[in-house]
């Protein structure tokens, strides 16, 4: 094995042992083979898990969407595109899409603008700002489960704080989660709050990445804080903003927890977003085929959004 063995053993033994070692490990192709093997051992655990829980389910989703299933999820027979034509002739499915788009329109711009204001106000190196940076990041660690339950109580029609604040302003109380006109807006308010921490962290890191010299030279040239922000910092921040818009739209298409807890899709399906209707279709009505078809529609929407983002990133690289 090592030099110590070599010196101790007889010469003819040495000749027998070393060529075998050489062939196994020291030749170039042997080394390559070993590196390949080792690499696949390192990748193995992740690969196996992804195969079972990502790639197989994607194929299975396509398979299920083309079949009809019984209540336990067993495949009954081939259905062709029946599940899809059922979806596209179903007003509830279009309602779900419409609600999801409204939800994205209500949550994404508001969430980003609020976070941008907070990031602009608390951007700086002075020690006193740290506590505010902590406060504005706070919602990022809270789960959709606990946040929804807290807001459920804030929205409570008679004892909730929101209606109490309205009464202090001499406004009449609102049936936040029960009134079909208000329910989606209420869920959106809660979602904007919940996403504020993430948006704030992304935007304030973006602002911090802009060199100080740019700010200094702008203020020497006599730009006020509003002009500095609007005409210099905002354009420099646009790649971050674009990233955030796409990520936020994707995450609004994935919303589920707050809807399930706060309104359960109601009243009158006014808050039944796409993932909630997938959940209902598959796990409450036990129609796994149409559920899978809806999931594939969601998949196509999200892949398209992701591709738009990549196209943009590519363009940016070309211009630089």
């Amino acid at each position: 094995m090592n030099r110590l063995d070599d010196t101790l053993h007889l010469p003819h033994e040495k000749v027998q042992v070393r060529p075998a070692q050489l062939r196994g490990a020291r030749t170039i192709s042997g080394l390559k083979w070993r590196e390949n093997l080792l690499a696949y051992i390192f990748l193995g655990p992740s690969l196996i898990l992804f195969m079972i829980f990502f790639f197989y389910p994607m194929i299975q989703s396509v398979y299920l969407s083309l079949h009809s299933t019984d209540l336990t999820g067993r495949v009954n027979g081939f259905a062709g595109l029946d599940n899809f034509s059922y979806l596209f002739n179903n007003h509830l499915f279009f309602n779900g899409l419409k609600v999801t788009v409204y939800f994205a329109l209500l949550t994404v711009p508001t969430g980003i603008i609020l976070a941008l204001i907070l990031a602009a106000l608390s951007n700086g190196k002075s020690k006193g700002l740290t506590i505010f940076q902590f406060a504005f990041s706070l919602p990022v660690v809270l789960s959709v489960g606990s946040s929804s339950v807290i807001w459920m109580f804030l929205f409570h029609p008679s004892l909730g704080m929101l209606n109490y604040f309205l009464s202090l302003l001499h406004l009449s109380p609102i049936n936040w989660l029960v009134d079909p006109k208000w329910a989606l807006l209420s869920v959106s308010i809660m979602t904007v709050w919940m996403n504020l921490g993430f948006n704030y962290i992304i935007l304030s890191s973006g602002l911090r990445g802009i060199p100080d010299e740019i700010r200094e030279s702008a203020s020497i040239d006599g730009a006020g804080p509003l002009r500095l922000f609007g005409q210099i910092l905002l354009p420099l921040l646009s790649p971050t903003l674009f990233f955030l818009v796409i990520v936020s739209v994707i995450s609004s298409f994935q919303a589920f927890g707050q809807v399930n807890i706060l309104t359960h899709g109601g009243p009158m399906n006014s808050t039944s977003v796409l993932v909630f209707s997938i959940y209902q279709e598959a796990f409450e009505n036990f129609r796994f085929g149409t559920g899978s078809a809806q999931a594939l529609v969601l998949f196509v929407i999200i892949i398209m959004l992701t591709l738009i983002q990549f196209k943009w990133a590519e363009k940016k690289v070309h211009y630089q």
Partner: peptide, 27 residues
């Protein structure tokens, strides 16, 4: 490390980041 199929496997790993978890819940 250098190994056969590295680029393809890396693309496959990245693809799992793009597949939203909600799409795979039923299977």
């Amino acid at each position: 490390m250098n190994f056969k199929g590295k680029n393809l496997l890396f693309a496959a790993f990245m693809a799992t980041m793009m597949i939203p978890w909600e799409v795979t819940i039923i299977p």
